[in-house]
Write a protein that binds this DNA or RNA. Structure first.
Lengths: 190, 190
DNA sequence: CCCTCGATACACCGATCGGTTTCCCCCGGT
DNA sequence: ACCGGGGGAAACCGATCGGTGTATCGAGGG
């Protein structure tokens, strides 16, 4: 197993949590979590206060790689339009993988109806970050209303990831990029 | 209680299930469900084969009113553009209610990761119906690519409902209608 | 009047939930 | 060689999970 080899118990727990939480939803049991992480329940509970904290920490840990993947490409290069469209192209690409289940942060927000849940704030942060990226590029590109454009792009991004993850839509024909492009054009982005 | 008065056990169960499932997610227990429905577990299990079937049936039961609400307005009237935008206006309106938690069918699709779940098919049906409405109006309105436009509108609809339900976005300034309008224009709808 | 049938209450099933505690082993320090 | 402590295995906690078995009740129809 990839997550069972040599790594600190903390890392093994966080990796296993990210995977199981993503695949099976919030209903992972502590038992199953610790079993696949190769860590005893006792150790888990002295590393974290509760299962909820483990979930929050696991979402937080994935943030950097999540952000890196979405904004990947020839480093720092490209026009604002290209940078924005690259996010949607990445989404289209990853959504084709057979075990794709949608954006983990959106799933968390939908599943954790209680906004007080520690993981809820982390997920909100992830979403806020992406919106910030869109907004910054919208400003750079001279969009008429950068904030509005960023919010519109988030609708498309979350709608696309949710629908693709639920297998009621397919993105591999460029649906997301073509939709985003229409909005960029309408917003007057260069 | 609204759902506890006089109605068949079946109806009381279905109503309670719709409410609890929507408010608390898939994790409602059979015990709590039956308690709030005022129906004994024994009765529930001779009306339905399993809890999953109750959930599927409750989603199915709500379909007609769900469809009616989204397409409401001066009956049969309006241009295709107006008919489409009315759906988004309705979404914006209902999303303002304090206990709005997003489209129940999208939530079901996200929470029930297993596509074999009986409720999964029902939820897919609800989504397919709305897409069909969009497509039909897109054709009537002479859109360049009705199928594409319908899929784009679904992205916006689901993104908007998910984000509003998760309280990371607010629709009351017309975000959904303005975004849909941009896509209608880009698609060449009359 | 009685009898059946639908519905109820409630105990019960094994499994699992999140979380705690106990016991023991092993490893490092001296 | 000895001792201390951290971590793992597993028992244990009360609660709840989805689901069933049983006995009772009450209303309606012959």
């Amino acid at each position: 197993m990839a997550t069972t080899d040599k790594a600190s118990p903390r890392e093994r727990l966080l990796d296993a949590a990210a995977e199981l939480f993503y695949r099976d939803g919030v209903s992972i049991g502590v038992e199953a979590l610790c079993r696949t992480a190769g860590v005893s329940k006792r150790s888990m509970y002295q590393l974290f206060d509760s299962k909820d904290e483990v979930l929050a920490a696991s979402l937080e840990r994935r943030l950097p790689s999540y952000e890196a993947r979405l904004t990947s490409g020839p480093d720092g290069a490209g026009t604002p339009r290209e940078r924005i469209l690259r996010v949607f192209a990445q989404l289209e690409q990853v959504s084709g993988e057979p075990d794709y289940r949608g954006c983990p942060y959106l799933s968390a927000l939908v599943e954790l109806k209680n906004p007080e849940h520690p993981a809820h704030a982390v997920a909100r942060g992830g979403k806020e970050w992406l919106k910030g990226v869109f907004r910054a590029q919208a400003e750079l590109g001279g969009a008429r209303d950068p904030e509005l454009l960023a919010r519109q792009l988030m609708l498309v991004f979350d709608g696309a990831s949710a629908r693709a993850g639920a297998r009621v839509e397919t993105l591999d024909d460029g649906l997301a990029t073509v939709t985003a492009t229409a909005l960029l054009d309408a917003a007057g982005l260069e």
